[in-house]
């Protein structure tokens, strides 16, 4: 899988940055506000959020719906501006959307008039990083990586939801992003397929040394995927607890059946629902 010549240079950079001990993505006291509809008052969506990701980290953000975890992800993607604090990628503030941060959306949002192959190479085409034949070849390699070899010439409407989610992932990986942002990418997919896709995602991330920030409301999903799980409070969202997951990645389905996994899920749930029930003063203690 790792035969693409263009990734070789990147890997060297990865190692270099890692050795310097510099955080890859760093959020310090991030506050995000947005205007209430129909008035000039501001609502705080994210309050004093601290988060650090090193290269190769896989971090999941879990929290009740509407807690601002997706808003935070959108800020990293560059769709939303932060009101206070610092949000830096490799020490530089995030300027706006860019192909160094690829987003995997909940809806696959594939362009229906493009073939699957052309959808995967779409990001490359926009950034003019690769010539057309090279982009096509790369798209085919990524389709192969996500287990969709041979469907490149089909149109998205001909694919199942699970297959579309794979294309969605391949499209994000095609631009060789610094960091992969995933916004509940498997939420609209049936439970069985979702578990398969989770394993696949970990395999793909391991194969390409991807740094990932993954938003979900599914506790088991977070526990299965992440190196660290950050639990958000209800709005205004802040990270109330960061839980480290003990297993190495990639992982297999067997982990799900271990008592430790159940324990981990319980731990996350306790924080999540404890917060939900209004135990607000847990905030400083658990930090």
């Amino acid at each position: 899988m790792r035969t693409l010549s263009s990734t070789a240079g990147h890997d060297a950079a990865h190692i270099g940055a890692g050795a310097a001990g510099e955080a890859h993505l760093e959020a310090r006291d991030v506050v995000i506000e947005y205007p209430k509809p129909g008035s000039k008052e501001m609502t705080t969506a994210v309050e004093r959020c601290d988060l650090t990701l090193d290269r190769g980290d896989f971090v999941c953000l879990v929290g009740p719906s509407g807690c601002g975890k997706t808003t935070f992800l959108n800020a990293v993607a560059g769709f939303v501006k932060i009101a206070e604090g610092a949000l830096e990628l490799d020490g530089r503030p995030i300027p706006g959307p860019g192909p160094d941060r690829a987003m995997v959306f909940q809806q696959a949002n594939l362009l229906p008039w493009r073939t699957v192959q052309a959808n995967v190479s779409y990001g490359l085409e926009l950034s003019r990083k690769a010539k057309k034949p090279a982009a096509r070849q790369r798209a085919d390699e990524l389709l192969d990586l996500v287990g969709l070899a041979g469907v490149g010439q089909q149109y998205p409407a001909q694919l199942s939801g699970g297959m579309q989610a794979r294309v969605n992932l391949a499209r994000a990986l095609a631009v060789d992003p610094e960091i992969l942002l995933l916004d509940e990418p498997f939420a609209a997919i049936d439970a069985q397929t979702r578990e398969v896709l989770q394993v696949e995602l970990l395999r793909v991330c391991a194969a390409r040394e991807v740094t990932a920030l993954f938003v979900t409301h599914d506790i088991a999903e977070a526990a299965f995927l992440a190196d660290r799980v950050c639990v958000f409070s209800p709005r205004p969202g802040r990270i109330v607890k960061e839980i480290t997951v003990p297993w190495d990645r990639p992982r297999s389905h067997e982990i799900r059946r271990t008592p430790e996994f159940a324990q981990l899920c319980d731990e996350i749930a306790d924080v999540l629902y404890g917060v939900k029930a209004g135990v607000g003063d847990e905030k400083e203690g658990s930090r």
């Binding site: 993607a77 769709f79 959307p97 860019g98 192909p99 941060r101 690829a102 987003m103 959306f105 809806q107 949002n109 362009l111 008039w113 493009r114 779409y122 990001g123 085409e125 926009l126 950034s127 499209r171 631009v175």
Partner: peptide, 25 residues
């Protein structure tokens, strides 16, 4: 579809690119 527009924006598409690859088709 706003989803398609977001995808294009996410990849850093310029206005012209957005127009050519999403709006027109």
């Amino acid at each position: 579809e706003q989803g398609a527009v977001r995808v294009a924006r996410c990849f850093g598409a310029s206005d012209l690119q957005l127009f050519r690859t999403v709006a027109l088709p």
